[in-house]
């Protein structure tokens, strides 16, 4: 069970307090109606699935309730950093 650092609570807490929420930095397009089917499908379905550094979202659902971003290595399963939503990609 991982330890996850919540950037809002500023504490490392056990993974069971958190919920994974998919890849990070995929902003909902501002004007979906203007997008082609292909671009919209890419937004909906295509994820980077990297081997190594993965930018992903977590929610401290049984804590402060905030969504935040993290960089986790998909090979070692280690968190490199967690940071608040809205902050630039690390």
């Amino acid at each position: 069970m991982l330890l996850v650092h919540c950037p809002y609570c500023e504490e490392k807490r056990a993974e069971i307090e958190f919920a994974y929420a998919g890849e990070a930095h995929i902003a909902r397009p501002l004007d979906p109606a203007a997008m082609s089917d292909e671009d919209w499908a890419r937004y909906l379905f295509i994820r980077s699935n990297p081997r190594g550094r993965h930018h992903e979202r977590w929610r401290h659902i049984h804590g402060c309730g905030r969504f935040f971003n993290a960089v986790r290595d998909t090979v070692t399963d280690k968190f490199e950093v967690t940071y608040k939503a809205g902050e630039p990609r690390r």
């Binding site: 919920a19 929420a21 909902r28 929610r59 659902i61 309730g65 969504f67 939503a85």
Partner: peptide, 13 residues
């Protein structure tokens, strides 16, 4: 509620 919180916090803060 989780979905709504997600949009509220991350898409439309």
């Amino acid at each position: 509620l989780n979905t709504m919180e997600d949009y509220l916090q991350t898409e439309w803060p």
